[in-house]
């Protein structure tokens, strides 16, 4: 039983790690500021959630799992707020969205 939970949590955490790498790769690869934000939100949502669920399976029903749940709630409530404030600030400062026909060099106003 516990071996099955171990394997399940290992799979979940591995998948979370993979999504984190994909998100970080997207932040590096995407053109333009706003498109990079989409890649970063993959880390914030799916990557973080999968890793935290895997850790929750590991910790069982203890105080540590309560703290992990609070951490999860913190990510879920605060990361969209931070993303929105960044996007809003960029919009106010006139960062233009990248368009496919503009080529690689764009959104570098500022």
């Amino acid at each position: 039983m516990s071996a099955a939970i171990d394997i399940l949590s290992m799979i979940l955490m591995g998948a979370g790690g993979v999504f984190c790498v994909i998100g970080a790769f997207g932040v590096l690869r995407m053109p333009g500021f706003y498109t990079r934000m989409h890649a970063a939100s993959v880390i914030d949502t799916l990557g973080a959630s999968l890793i935290i669920v895997g850790l929750l399976l590991q910790s069982g029903f203890t105080l540590a799992s309560g703290k992990l749940l609070i951490l999860w709630l913190l990510i879920f409530f605060c990361s969209p707020t931070a993303s929105h404030s960044l996007a809003n600030a960029a919009h106010r400062r006139g960062v233009t969205p990248w368009q496919p026909d503009q080529g690689a060099k764009s959104s570098s106003k500022n």
């Binding site: 706003y34 939100s41 949502t45 879920f76 409530f77 990361s79 929105h84």
Partner: peptide
């Protein structure tokens, strides 16, 4: 916040 939380869409203003 739901729009921002879903990857692929971001509420800007």
């Amino acid at each position: 916040n739901s729009i921002t939380l879903t990857p692929g869409t971001i509420s800007v203003a």
